[in-house]
């Protein structure tokens, strides 16, 4: 029995740390399920252009609303396009846009929150009131405005989504910074004369990183839902780009007799959201953060 080892751990490489976190995540059933779903979706997103059996925009009036068959696994839609092809490619669109969107949200929200938490005073007051003002605007209305002004290209959607989902992260990052800021090691760094930048980079970020990452992971799944809602309303990516929200929107009227056209994107969207949520929860638990006590902002 080597109990000594319980209390002795050496510094690990980033890769070793990451793999340890992933192993901890996978050791719970919920984490394992979440991770598998997410990994499945990510792999699918990468390989979908190569495995897609049909052309996603090939319209064929003779093949309208075919039931699932050996040729068309998930059937065809009202324009005769292959639903299977469009579903796997739709995941690619959704994942790419929301992944980069949440990355942007994480970066600006996290950094601004940390900065406000550290600096405090007037600057903090002003910035937080502006953030509060934005929080009070229904995001979907604001998105509609942006999209109608600037169009629905990916270059517009990613930063716009990133901006609207970053507001909440500002608050989380600021609160997490406040927890750390009163600690003596920050006082000590200040007394030594480190610059604000150095304090943020060396002292604060390592201590708030976990909380912000978990928050970012949660935002990702929310953003996915938000992005799909936009598409559903017709303000997401423009046709014929395959997209789940758009597919659901197009097929929902035909649900009574061509259920396959709507079920496939729904399953895709909800499984990805569940996958991300479960993964984020497992991630938080693996890092030792109890998310259940934190109310969403």
């Amino acid at each position: 029995m080597k109990l000594d080892n319980i209390y002795k751990e050496e510094k690990k490489s980033a890769f070793a740390k990451l793999s340890e976190i992933i192993i901890t995540m996978a050791s719970r059933p919920s984490g394992l399920i979440g991770l598998s779903i997410l990994v499945f979706h990510i792999i699918l997103a990468f390989i979908s252009p190569y495995i897609a059996p049909h052309d996603f925009k090939a319209i064929d009036p003779t093949l309208m609303l075919q039931a699932p068959s050996a040729e068309y696994w998930f059937g065809t839609d009202d324009l005769g396009r292959d639903v299977f092809t469009r579903t796997i490619l739709g995941g690619r669109t959704a994942l790419t846009i929301t992944f980069f969107g949440s990355l942007i949200a994480l970066l600006w929200g996290g950094l601004l929150g940390i900065f406000c938490g550290l600096v405090g005073g007037k600057i903090d007051d002003v910035v937080m009131r502006i953030v509060d003002a934005f929080l009070s605007i229904p995001w979907i209305l604001a998105m509609l405005l942006i999209v109608s002004l600037l169009g629905t290209s990916t270059e517009v959607l990613i930063p716009a989504l990133g901006f609207f989902y970053g507001k909440g992260i500002v608050r989380v990052a600021r609160a997490a910074t406040h927890d750390v800021i009163a600690k003596d090691f920050i006082v000590s760094a200040r007394a030594r004369g480190h610059s604000n930048f150095s304090i943020i980079w060396n002292e604060i970020i390592p201590n708030v990183r976990d909380a912000i990452l978990v928050e970012g992971a949660m935002r990702w799944s929310w953003m996915l839902l938000g992005f799909s809602s936009l598409s559903f309303l017709g303000f997401g990516v423009s046709p014929p780009t395959p997209d789940w929200g758009l597919m659901i929107s197009n097929a929902r009227g035909l649900m009574s007799f061509a259920y396959w056209a709507v079920i496939a994107p729904i399953v895709g969207l909800s499984s990805l959201i569940i996958g991300i949520n479960l993964t984020a929860d497992a991630f938080a638990k693996a890092l030792g953060i109890d998310r259940s006590t934190k109310a969403p902002v």
């Binding site: 003596d184 006082v187 007394a191 030594r192 002292e203």
Partner: peptide
Amino acid sequence: PNDLRIIQLIFQNPDESLNPNHT
């Protein structure tokens, strides 16, 4: 910086005065 260097602090509680994420 030199004025800052000549005076150093040691705190009461080492749990708080050492960054838990630094070696």
